[in-house]
Amino acid sequence: MEVTSYRSETAPVMTSVSKWKKRIPFIIAYGVLGLTTLPIILMYLWLLLSSFSEQMKYGFIPVRFTLENWKFLWTSVEHGGSELPSIWTATWNSFVFSGTLTILEVIIGVMAGYALSRLEFPGRQALMKTTLLLHAFPSIALLIAVYYILNFMGLFDSLWGVVLVKTALQIPMTAWIVKGFFDDVPWDVEWAGLIDGCSRLKVWFTIVLPLIKPGIAAVSIFSFLSGWSEFLLLYTFILSDENVTLASYLQRLISDPNLVNYGLLSAVSLFYMLPVLLFFIFTQKSLMQVSVGGGKRV
């Protein structure tokens, strides 16, 4: 929509004083926001500097540039007397974990969301009410029960087992978010598809799903990120080196407080962040655009 620009027509000659006066609210706002975000920005800056320097004088002044801290990328690292698993194994595992989690979560969440939004079945209201409650359950409270179940199913110390647990914990929220997107798709569009010759399932695939693409994108991004940053479940249920993920890898670097190599820790942390940043740059567009509805809303 274009905004009528009546202001420019009536605008008198602007003096520099009034220009500055107009900017004052912005200056104040940005000033306050900038000051409060400064600690966070400094944190990242410290991480970056620390990873590329030999030591930090007084804790915050970097001394001498080095790539020593980054050599974990091409050689195996010894830490606290034992050799750590390859960073690439951990990265691959993290990808597998987050990727499978995303796929499972999106498939199940989208189907569940549609059912909650559109289908009439007994207990639907009750299900929707308890869904959020389920999500509010802290996973730490379930650790012991989950251990017994995984052990019983032979999925202990397996990435797949943890994927299933994490998916189960995430589904309620995902389904809930997706339901909101389905709610915004008008019935008319779905009916039009039925009349134009589709079966209900085909309407779902060819018409309804494309309309909630932004929702699917949002849910995928969130579930990937939550998989990538998952620590507790992986730390508890994964023991062997070949199944280690990046979060647990980081944990090993700081497990003994006497032996922490801060340079290495910073470098690995940055490496851990990198995929998320890239992922975000590529996906933020689909997070922003939302277009649902095939015409005027009635």
Binding site: P186, W191, I195
Partner: peptide, 20 residues
């Protein structure tokens, strides 16, 4: 009979076009 097998055409109040 399912809607798809009835051989009908329909115009909705909201038009219900497929936006994509």
């Amino acid at each position: 009979l399912e809607p798809k097998d009835r051989n009908i055409g329909m115009v909705f109040q909201s038009y219900a076009l497929y936006p994509h």
